[in-house]
């Protein structure tokens, strides 16, 4: 349903490849030696990885491993104790509009008196610049994004009256309306229904087909091999980073989760399954 080849976005976007301002050979995302500390507790230690080309990246690790903090640090939302982050070879300040962030669903007040349409329109705000209001173009774009995520029928509902899955879709539609080249999503699949999960995975695929980069904090290890290209195993430090086939191994997972991983066996099985299928 999502992969309509005639969707306007699919036609419009490839024209922007490769994005302007990209240095030749500059990596898409370069996280260099990032350390983040809250008070005296270090949350991220020397996190260092480089993404050479657009990809679907899953960030996985146990609770408290600093997954959400990593996204916030990369986006400049928490101060870095050390290190630097570069997008397409440039600092974030010069390419904010090409980066979209989807925070955790619980991070906002869903009683806030706005409709789904209002929230999705917020995705267009950054491009508009100061003092300008969303016009017909922005409304059309918002409508299109809502249709793509299957929430157009609740467009004028106050956001508190949505189901969890619909709320998550609203957030994703807002990110889509930002027309970014890189998306950072914090647990977009936490607590959503099966239908929304399908829609979200389809969205990942579609974005990837348009050479976008999608970095997802993810908790369901079993779906990693099927839906992601790269994986970052994180537990305060980077345990491993690379293509899923090479890095997503039981040994690495054991190292990431310590002895606490109950799903380990299932993952190993999932891996065996995906090895057989192609």
């Amino acid at each position: 349903m999502l992969k309509r080849p005639d969707s306007p976005q699919a036609e419009a976007e490839p024209g922007r490849q490769p994005p302007a301002g990209t240095g030749p050979g500059a990596p898409v995302l370069d996280v260099h030696d990032v350390t983040v500390a809250y008070h005296r507790r270090t949350v991220l230690w020397n996190v260092d990885f480089t993404l050479q080309s657009p990809s679907l990246v899953a960030v996985v690790g146990p609770n408290g491993a600093g997954k959400s903090t990593l996204l916030k640090a990369v986006l400049g939302l928490v101060p870095l104790a050390s290190g630097s982050v570069r997008f397409w070879g440039e600092p974030l300040a010069r390419c904010r509009r090409r980066v979209a962030y989807v925070p955790q669903r619980e991070s906002v007040d869903w009683d806030f008196p706005v409709t789904v349409r209002d929230v999705v329109l917020m995705g267009t705000y950054a491009r508009l610049g100061w003092f300008r209001r969303p016009g017909p173009d922005e409304h059309r774009l918002a409508q299109q994004c809502m249709e793509q995520l299957g929430i157009a029928h609740v467009a004028d509902r106050q956001i508190g009256q949505l189901s969890g899955g619909q709320q998550q879709r609203t957030f994703l539609a807002r990110a889509l309306a930002q027309r970014a080249d890189m998306y950072f999503m914090d647990e977009p699949l936490a607590g959503v229904d099966a239908a929304t999960e399908r829609v979200v995975f389809d969205l990942f695929k579609q974005l990837h087909a348009q050479h976008k980069t999608v970095v997802v904090v993810h908790h369901d290890l079993r779906s990693v091999p099927e839906h992601f290209e790269h994986v970052l195993l994180l537990n305060t430090r980077v345990v491993a980073f690379g293509p899923v086939q090479e890095v997503f191994t039981p040994q690495n997972l054991q190292q990431t989760y310590g002895g606490r991983l109950s799903a380990l066996e299932q993952v190993a099985e999932a891996l065996r399954r995906t090895e057989k299928t192609p």
Binding site: L77, R97, Y101, V108, F112, M122, Y125, W130, F184
Partner: peptide, 22 residues
């Protein structure tokens, strides 16, 4: 009137607003 959309975004979702440079 002038800062309506920035204020709205900042009030609803400060994290996203900060990431988007609002």
């Amino acid at each position: 009137l002038l800062a309506w959309k920035e204020l709205l975004a900042a009030s609803f979702d400060p994290a996203m607003a900060a990431a988007a440079g609002l």
